[in-house]
């Protein structure tokens, strides 16, 4: 119990420091006023401009010291209000923007991870049980190919073959389609993300499985007369999952902000594309909101990974 309380306290501390650092860095390195008004911000001799400047300063509390502004942002954020966009007349509010886009990215990432895991585990089991044989070597070459291939290239190849040539898959994502067709439209982008990720997961799990398969308790399981398959699934898999779970967790967090290429190619208006747009426009509230979402996702997933550890291995239970 104490352990989990500590974990939660650490998580809160981590989120506070991430937000403070991001908030501070953006405000010190950029000029919020300029980012809101554009060139008008420097036109201090024109009474019309001055009026606009005064209005913006009042709206965004720009005259307050940095610490106060951070405090204001934070109290809004924890209540679910992520502020107003600097650009596009401040519409829609950042919270609405995130609410609209986050589910798409989350679905994409989740679907991709599910695919990656369900490809990687059987793949690793097969190759580990035949380590060093021809099929294992061919598989190794394939993993290197998948990992080395840039994401956009894989996306284009998959799109070309499966959508354009064969016509099996939809070409792009359409935000107004019904849920079922939108899910179907997510399959190809998810696969694009999943394939190289699955290759990495497979390499990792294969290595751990090979180590486990040399353990005494595997020989013991064989001596009981269990079939190869049963030895693999019941005895070897579970103790081999630790680094696999860790990497799946870290990777899921990274994908939330990092699926930009795939989102662009398949025209999915998600978090990734918002992040790039807002960074280019120096739209601080949007950047900050996305950074916080990714950070929260990391924290939650790692908490989940710790819980999974204790489920898998009785020795780490407290």
């Amino acid at each position: 119990m104490r352990f989990w309380l500590q974990r939660v306290a650490m998580a809160v501390l981590l989120l506070l420091s991430v937000s403070a650092l991001t908030f501070g860095a953006m405000n010190i390195l950029g000029d919020p006023l300029f980012n809101i008004l554009g060139p008008v911000a420097g036109d201090v001799n024109n009474p019309d401009s001055v009026k606009l400047i005064e209005k913006a300063k009042a709206e965004f509390d720009l005259d307050e010291p940095l610490v106060v502004r951070y405090g204001l942002w934070l109290s809004d954020f924890v209540r679910g209000d992520m502020g107003v966009q600097f650009s596009s007349d401040g519409q829609p509010p950042v919270s609405d923007l995130i609410k609209e886009r986050l589910p798409r990215t989350a679905t994409l990432v989740l679907l991709a991870q599910l695919m990656a895991i369900s490809i990687a585990i059987p793949w690793a089991l097969v190759t580990a049980s035949r380590a060093g044989r021809l099929s294992d070597r061919i598989s190794t070459m394939n993993t290197f190919f998948l990992v080395a291939m840039p994401n956009f290239a894989l996306a284009i190849i998959l799109k070309f073959v499966l959508s354009i040539k064969l016509g099996w898959m939809p070409l792009t994502y359409v935000a107004n389609d019904p849920l079922s067709s939108r899910l179907w439209q997510m399959v190809l982008p998810a696969l694009t993300i999943a394939l190289p990720v699955a290759a990495v997961f497979q390499r990792l799990l294969r290595t751990d499985l090979i180590t486990t398969l040399q353990q005494d308790f595997i020989l013991m399981a064989r001596a009981k007369g269990l079939s190869r398959r049963r030895v693999l699934f019941r005895h070897a898999l579970r103790p081999s999952l630790f680094s696999f779970i860790t990497v799946v967790g870290l990777n899921t967090g990274a994908l939330i902000g990092g699926s930009i290429v795939v989102e662009t190619i398949f025209r999915i208006p998600g978090i990734g594309s918002s992040l790039v747009e807002s960074v280019l426009r120096e739209d601080f509230p949007v950047v900050l909101a996305i950074v916080m979402i990714v950070a929260v996702a990391f924290v939650l997933i790692n908490l989940l990974v710790d819980i999974l550890y204790s489920i898998i291995d009785p020795r780490v239970r407290r």
Partner: peptide, 27 residues
């Protein structure tokens, strides 16, 4: 191996040297 699987554990059984590592730690 398949044929032997009905002999292993049923007709012939083995006790291994190291009880620390010969039992599955997560079962």
């Amino acid at each position: 191996t398949k044929e032997m699987q009905s002999v292993w554990g049923r007709e012939m059984a083995m006790i291994f040297q190291d009880p620390m590592t010969s039992l599955n730690p997560v079962m």
